[in-house]
Design a protein around this nucleic acid. Structure first.
Lengths: 198, 198
DNA sequence: TCCCTTTCTAGACATATGTCTAGATAATAG
DNA sequence: CTATTATCTAGACATATGTCTAGAAAGGGA
């Protein structure tokens, strides 16, 4: 038919995801996007609906990535799944994109008072999914008698979610991961005690 | 001597603190700063060392405010101090500036990869102070026999700090505070169990 | 009152931003 | 090979940004 696109759409969106992840939305310019994703400025507007459109696609890519990696293991894992998830938060070397924290946390904080309602919706979906996965894991743990029957699963899931978000802040701050690992271990020791009946 | 300044320096810095708190650094323009703080553009540069200088002063003002309000009660309170602090995180109406989360958390996330080393230093000072206050409170609790002797105070303090940061993210996200309060209550119930010997 | 100093007002300035346009460039169909 | 279509390159464009400048305004000392 005609000339081929000079970029691969999926990998371009992934690259954009990493750029926004590292630098945030406002602090990323379209010229930088061109450089780091291979999308040319023309295509950015005609194919992605501008910077905003690309950002939304990047957020959705992050959402999908989360679902396919972390959340799956978590939902199916009982208390061990939770332990593995929490440990995973503070693992990863200097080249791991996770050192930039959580794109959703970053976005929610940057965007809080700045229009773009759709962004908030995606972030909420992400956190709801995470919460639901924690609840799944806890429910499974209860079935396995790892937790007492009266254990408050929604509240515990919420607490785990909140703690995770705090860890993401620390990770982005690049405080040494050792301290972050220490706190995760402490929380794990608290979780161990959940097993005991009250 | 000469013409009087048209603004009060302290209240201008406080106003700037609230503006940066709500909108972040990059998303706040100098013209908006003029409007919301009463500082004119000339004074912003000659008296405050530009937008960046004012931002640093605003961060320091936040640091001082934190020390004088939250941290004092926390350090002196044992487990009850911790409980009060955590409850305080999720209190406050729609006009409370705390609905914008924690300025230091917001700043750390926005600024993570963007130069301005001094910003990171101030934020680190803030979090270190918070951690130290948690440790003070836990030490006092241990003295009061509220905690077992082998209780790991630094790790617990770190965990409380992380949880608090997660709460600040939620608060800024404006998820309903009811859910946030629920999770704080759950954490409080975990703290109650710290008293039991292992 | 006049003078001198400090501060303010208004806007210039260079740069950076996101979007849009026109002509060039590839790839395919006939 | 030519026509047609889709895409790209290069840059114009209006707007927004943070900083700086020149002249006006305000206050206090003589």
């Amino acid at each position: 038919m005609a000339r081929r696109k000079s970029y691969d759409r999926d990998s371009a969106v992934t690259a954009a995801m990493h750029t926004f992840w590292a630098r945030g939305y406002s602090n990323t310019g379209v010229r930088q996007i061109e450089r780091e994703t291979g999308i040319n400025r023309f295509a950015l507007n005609t194919e992605f609906n501008g910077k905003t459109g690309l950002f939304l696609e990047a957020l959705n890519a992050y959402l999908a990535m989360s679902r396919e990696t972390m959340l799956k293991d978590l939902s199916a894992g009982g208390l061990d799944g939770i332990r593995a998830f929490l440990k995973g938060l503070v693992k990863g070397g200097a080249s791991d994109p996770r050192r930039y924290g959580c794109l959703m946390v970053n976005t929610v904080i940057e965007n809080a008072d700045l229009g773009l309602e759709e962004v908030r919706a995606i972030a909420t979906a992400h956190f709801d999914a995470l919460q639901a996965s924690f609840e799944d894991a806890l429910r499974m743990a209860k079935q396995n008698s790892e937790l007492p029957l009266e254990f408050d699963i929604p509240a515990a899931a919420r607490t785990l979610l909140t703690f995770s978000m705090g860890v993401e802040v620390f990770v982005r701050m690049q405080e040494d991961l050792g301290a972050a690992q220490q706190q995760v271990d402490f929380l794990l020791s608290l979780i161990d005690r959940w097993t005991e009946t009250t």
